[in-house]
Protein backbone atom coordinates (compact mmCIF):
# COMPACT_ATOMS: atom_id res chain seq x y z
CA UNK A 1 0.00 0.00 0.00
CA UNK A 2 2.86 2.37 0.79
CA UNK A 3 4.68 1.81 -2.52
CA UNK A 4 3.98 4.59 -5.00
CA UNK A 5 3.36 3.55 -8.59
CA UNK A 6 4.55 6.34 -10.86
CA UNK A 7 2.10 5.26 -13.59
CA UNK A 8 -0.85 6.06 -11.40
CA UNK A 9 -1.37 9.76 -10.87
CA UNK A 10 -4.40 9.70 -8.58
CA UNK A 11 -4.65 6.73 -6.26
CA UNK A 12 -6.74 6.79 -3.10
CA UNK A 13 -5.58 4.98 0.02
CA UNK A 14 -7.94 3.08 2.33
CA UNK A 15 -8.90 4.90 5.49
CA UNK A 16 -11.37 4.35 8.30
CA UNK A 17 -13.89 7.17 8.47
CA UNK A 18 -13.63 8.28 4.86
CA UNK A 19 -16.82 10.35 5.27
CA UNK A 20 -15.76 11.60 8.71
CA UNK A 21 -17.26 10.37 11.94
CA UNK A 22 -20.51 9.01 10.51
CA UNK A 23 -21.89 8.66 14.04
CA UNK A 24 -22.83 12.34 13.66
CA UNK A 25 -25.57 11.35 11.21
CA UNK A 26 -27.49 9.55 13.91
CA UNK A 27 -30.62 10.78 15.66
CA UNK A 28 -31.39 7.44 17.31
CA UNK A 29 -28.75 5.34 19.03
CA UNK A 30 -28.81 1.54 19.42
CA UNK A 31 -28.55 0.35 23.01
CA UNK A 32 -28.05 -3.32 23.79
CA UNK A 33 -29.65 -4.83 26.90
CA UNK A 34 -27.20 -7.65 27.61
CA UNK A 35 -29.66 -9.48 29.87
CA UNK A 36 -31.83 -10.10 26.78
CA UNK A 37 -29.03 -10.60 24.23
CA UNK A 38 -28.94 -14.29 23.21
CA UNK A 39 -25.11 -14.74 23.00
CA UNK A 40 -24.75 -13.10 26.44
CA UNK A 41 -27.43 -15.36 27.95
CA UNK A 42 -26.12 -18.57 26.40
CA UNK A 43 -22.48 -17.47 26.88
CA UNK A 44 -21.54 -18.88 23.49
CA UNK A 45 -21.60 -17.85 19.82
CA UNK A 46 -25.28 -17.78 18.86
CA UNK A 47 -27.72 -15.52 17.00
CA UNK A 48 -25.48 -12.54 16.01
CA UNK A 49 -28.11 -11.45 13.48
CA UNK A 50 -27.25 -7.81 14.25
CA UNK A 51 -23.70 -8.47 13.09
CA UNK A 52 -25.04 -10.26 10.02
CA UNK A 53 -27.40 -7.48 8.95
CA UNK A 54 -25.38 -4.38 9.92
CA UNK A 55 -24.77 -2.50 6.63
CA UNK A 56 -21.80 -0.64 8.11
CA UNK A 57 -20.05 -3.55 9.79
CA UNK A 58 -19.76 -1.57 13.05
CA UNK A 59 -21.09 -4.33 15.31
CA UNK A 60 -18.42 -6.50 16.85
CA UNK A 61 -19.70 -10.05 17.38
CA UNK A 62 -18.21 -10.59 20.81
CA UNK A 63 -19.69 -11.52 24.20
CA UNK A 64 -20.89 -9.02 25.32
CA UNK A 65 -21.83 -7.38 22.04
CA UNK A 66 -20.00 -4.17 21.10
CA UNK A 67 -21.35 -1.43 18.82
CA UNK A 68 -18.92 1.17 17.49
CA UNK A 69 -20.97 4.32 18.11
CA UNK A 70 -18.34 6.51 16.51
CA UNK A 71 -19.33 5.21 13.05
CA UNK A 72 -22.82 3.75 13.61
CA UNK A 73 -25.21 5.74 11.39
CA UNK A 74 -28.20 4.71 13.48
CA UNK A 75 -30.27 3.06 10.74
CA UNK A 76 -31.92 0.76 13.28
CA UNK A 77 -31.74 -2.46 11.27
CA UNK A 78 -30.11 -4.24 14.25
CA UNK A 79 -32.98 -3.24 16.57
CA UNK A 80 -35.52 -4.30 13.95
CA UNK A 81 -33.95 -7.71 13.32
CA UNK A 82 -33.00 -8.58 16.92
CA UNK A 83 -35.08 -11.70 17.76
CA UNK A 84 -34.73 -11.19 21.53
CA UNK A 85 -35.60 -7.46 21.33
CA UNK A 86 -32.35 -6.78 23.18
CA UNK A 87 -31.34 -3.82 21.01
CA UNK A 88 -33.57 -0.75 21.24
CA UNK A 89 -33.20 2.62 19.57
CA UNK A 90 -33.16 5.57 21.97
CA UNK A 91 -33.07 9.27 21.14
CA UNK A 92 -29.56 10.72 21.05
CA UNK A 93 -30.38 13.26 23.76
CA UNK A 94 -31.52 10.72 26.33
CA UNK A 95 -29.18 8.87 28.64
CA UNK A 96 -29.06 5.03 28.44
CA UNK A 97 -32.77 4.80 27.59
Amino acid sequence: MKKKDTNISAMATPAVGEAGKTGDWRDMRPVCDHSKCIPSIKKKAACFLCWLYCPEGVIKATIPLEIDLEYCKGCGICAEECPGKAITMVNEGEKNG
Binding site: T22, P55, E56, D68, G74
Partner: peptide, 27 residues
Protein backbone atom coordinates in the same frame (compact mmCIF):
# COMPACT_ATOMS: atom_id res chain seq x y z
CA UNK B 1 -17.08 -16.21 16.49
CA UNK B 2 -19.67 -15.55 13.74
CA UNK B 3 -17.41 -17.31 11.22
CA UNK B 4 -18.38 -20.70 12.71
CA UNK B 5 -22.00 -19.71 13.09
CA UNK B 6 -22.64 -18.42 9.58
CA UNK B 7 -19.66 -20.00 7.75
CA UNK B 8 -18.57 -16.67 6.27
CA UNK B 9 -15.26 -14.90 5.95
CA UNK B 10 -14.76 -12.79 9.09
CA UNK B 11 -12.51 -10.21 7.39
CA UNK B 12 -14.14 -6.83 6.67
CA UNK B 13 -13.02 -5.22 3.40
CA UNK B 14 -15.36 -2.26 3.76
CA UNK B 15 -14.13 0.06 6.46
CA UNK B 16 -16.58 1.83 8.79
CA UNK B 17 -17.36 5.46 8.15
CA UNK B 18 -18.21 5.18 4.46
CA UNK B 19 -20.46 7.57 2.61
CA UNK B 20 -23.55 5.43 1.81
CA UNK B 21 -26.95 6.41 3.25
CA UNK B 22 -28.32 5.12 6.55
CA UNK B 23 -29.60 1.59 6.13
CA UNK B 24 -28.29 1.31 2.56
CA UNK B 25 -29.08 -2.05 1.00
CA UNK B 26 -26.08 -1.72 -1.27
CA UNK B 27 -23.55 -1.36 1.54
Amino acid sequence: MPENLFKVNIEEYMLPGQRACQGCGLS
